[in-house]
Simulated assay, not measured.
Amino acid sequence: MKMPKGKTLSLRLAEVGDAEFIYRLRVDPSYNQHLSVVDGTSDDQREWLRKYKERESRGEEYYFIIFRTSDQFPLGTIRLYDFVGGRKSFGIGSWIVADQKSRFSALESVLLAYDFGFSELGFEACHMDVRKDNEKVVSFHRKSGALLCREDDVNVYFTMTREIFDNFSNRFRPLLTPVVA
């Protein structure tokens, strides 16, 4: 399996040894206000990662560490999960990009994750549920061309097809092209 690599960022599969890094991101109030609540300790995160690695080995989900390619500095996380209907649709979430990011880190990291789901895994669509009060991410998905499926009191639900992704990502193709030294 080919790991996603873009112009300045790369994704690698999370390992049990990443538990402390992930836990610090998940409990930081500046990053977690729109994510599901994390209870417990970094040891609990380590145990969750052990169980995740079993799901990963079965091809049921992929949890990535986002890092700067130039110095391997970890910047965040993003996860592909909730695989529906064989290769019909995947969910994307657990998307956190820390403050040490560049101007385009969030965009580059999500483009890499989408591209992995569509190109490497062969999915037809991606589904997202975004908290309504997460206005930046709701706006991002609207601007990307993702289709608004429905809303409830808490979330806005989007779908992105392969065709929509291709149209959207073509505008940012340089971010998906690794720099050759």
Rank of each mutant, 00 (worst) to 15 (best):
M1G: 10
K2G: 07
K2L: 11
K5E: 11
T8Q: 14
L9P: 03
L9W: 00
R12K: 06
R12F: 04
V16R: 10
D18Q: 08
A19Q: 03
A19W: 04
A19E: 06
A19G: 05
F21I: 04
F21N: 03
I22G: 07
Y23N: 01
R24W: 02
L25V: 01
P29H: 09
P29V: 08
Q33E: 09
S36W: 11
V37P: 00
D39R: 14
G40T: 09
D43Y: 11
D43T: 14
D44E: 08
W48E: 02
L49E: 06
L49Y: 04
K53V: 09
E61Q: 15
Y63W: 05
Y63E: 02
Y63P: 05
F64P: 01
I66C: 00
F67I: 02
R68S: 14
R68K: 13
T69L: 07
S70Y: 15
S70F: 15
P74Q: 06
L75V: 07
L75D: 04
T77R: 07
I78K: 01
I78N: 05
L80Q: 08
Y81H: 07
Y81I: 00
D82F: 04
F83Y: 13
G91H: 01
I92L: 15
G93R: 06
G93K: 07
S94Q: 11
W95K: 08
I96A: 03
D99C: 05
Q100C: 09
Q100S: 13
K101L: 06
S102T: 13
F104M: 12
F104R: 07
S105R: 01
S105G: 08
A106Q: 06
S109E: 12
S109R: 09
V110P: 01
L112F: 07
L112Y: 05
Y114K: 04
D115I: 09
D115N: 15
F116V: 10
F118H: 10
G122R: 12
F123N: 07
F123C: 09
F123W: 12
E124R: 15
E124W: 10
A125E: 09
D133Q: 14
D133N: 13
K136T: 10
V137H: 11
V138S: 07
S139Y: 11
S139A: 14
S139G: 15
H141K: 02
K143V: 02
K143Q: 09
K143D: 06
G145M: 05
A146S: 12
A146G: 05
L147R: 14
L147N: 12
E151I: 00
D153L: 04
D153Y: 01
V154A: 07
V154H: 12
N155I: 03
Y157K: 00
Y157W: 03
T159F: 08
T161Y: 00
T161P: 00
E163V: 12
F165Y: 15
D166V: 06
D166C: 02
D166L: 00
N167L: 13
N167D: 15
N170M: 13
N170G: 15
F172V: 03
F172D: 01
F172A: 04
R173K: 12
L176K: 02
P178D: 09
P178K: 09
V180I: 14
V180S: 15
A181S: 13
